[in-house]
Design a protein around this nucleic acid. Structure first.
Lengths: 219, 219
DNA sequence: TGGGGATTGTGAAAATACGCACAATATGCT
DNA sequence: AGCATATTGTGCGTATTTTCACAATCCCCA
């Protein structure tokens, strides 16, 4: 029953999606095998790190050969939870919210946005790409009824915390937060902050010439 | 002339935008002072780390008092390069590209998107919010002529590398990449990958129940 | 069958990053 | 003035992460 001691560091976990992405590209290109050095080169990192990361999720490599792309891909999908279909609600149908809702790429990751909410009376009741925009006051009802686990917040920062509270109370356990504020949530709820301004700052700093930093790691 | 030994770790650099964000919110709320513990609480981190980070960019705190919000804010703006106006071009006017172009929040960070490009003949020549969408073949000309330093890539992954090459050749030194691929660029060019799918994976993993990880750090 | 070249997995060292704990400093109140 | 309270800046031990380096493993081909 000792499943295999899965000892995964925080930093490594953040890298898994990048391995996945690169492997998927290789799979599409028809490569059946890939070496740690190739993978490292594609991602601009060290090959030893790739090997250690991959070895920590299982034994997929064969010495002298490399990694089996489909096999590894499958393991990563499993590990990343991409095989589960996830249903989410999106709150805040502004430009960003609309873009996310229309983004076709999420399907491949098992995500489906099943309901839209906004607080603007002008928007409530209208449709976006065929989906009805509901009042935020309906969040508790809808989320609970559909047993939604994920909430996507694309509201202005001022209302984000309040929305987060509503979502959490209604049973959401994962929040994808695009509002530029840090949310407080109970420890069992996972929050992923996607702060566009932070990314922008990173680059601005480079442009201002104040820096001499090397190329940043991803994300 | 020893400017002050600015020794900044990579990890710390990634946190600066979050300090900035939180401080800006406090400034708007009218608070003139803030303590490391308040700041830490807002961001869900340790106060010692806040103090060490802030002390490494200068001496802004006063023992027994805390930090002067406007002063610190100014220092962070300087440090993050937010005082420079940055002009950028955006390539790939799909849903995401359009959302970014219309996003008003970037102004506060000194970013202005001055030109849009796409390869779709249907889009070329049309306007988005009053801005003309040009053919990607005009990238070299426009970027060079306007001395643009930043390129935003919101194209499909397949063409992202090619666009990156064009941008770099035309003189761009910072790339904000929303396409889910790792770009190869010369070392002097800085790339920031903004991979939405990576964020999604992070949360999916939690939902699949495979995890027992605590709340993740930001970004 | 055996040697050569490639590549993994990992022990151990090095480098980073974290957080505790406390001396030093500042304010306010009596 | 003197004491109580608040809060910074940082030395230092610990934990985490990265990198090096190499034995072990595997395929290919003669």
């Amino acid at each position: 029953m000792p499943e295999r001691e899965v000892r995964m560091s925080r930093a490594m976990l953040a890298r898994l999606p990048f391995y996945y992405r690169t492997l998927a590209a290789h799979a599409r290109a028809g490569n059946g095998k890939i070496s740690s050095s190739q993978l490292a080169a594609s991602l601009g990192m060290d090959s030893a790190r790739v090997r250690r990361d991959l070895s920590s999720i299982g034994e997929f490599g064969r010495p002298g050969i490399g990694y089996d792309v489909p096999e590894l891909l499958e393991a990563l999908e499993e590990m990343l939870g991409l095989r589960n279909r996830t249903e989410a609600v999106l709150v805040g149908v502004g430009r960003l919210g609309a873009a996310l809702f229309g983004y076709p790429g999420f399907e491949g990751y098992g995500l489906r946005i099943v309901s839209l909410f906004d607080s603007d009376p002008e928007k409530i009741g209208t449709k976006l790409n065929g989906a009805l925009i509901r009042s935020v006051s309906e969040i508790p009802h809808v989320v609970r009824r559909l047993s939604i686990q994920m909430g996507i917040i694309t509201t202005p920062p001022a209302s984000a915390q309040q929305i987060a509270d509503m979502l959490v109370n209604a049973g959401v356990i994962a929040i994808w937060n695009f509002a530029p504020v840090s949310l407080s949530v109970p420890p069992e709820v996972m929050v992923r902050d996607e702060d566009l301004a932070a990314g922008l700052s990173y680059l601005s700093r480079h442009l201002s010439g104040t820096t001499n930093a090397a190329r940043p790691a991803q994300e």
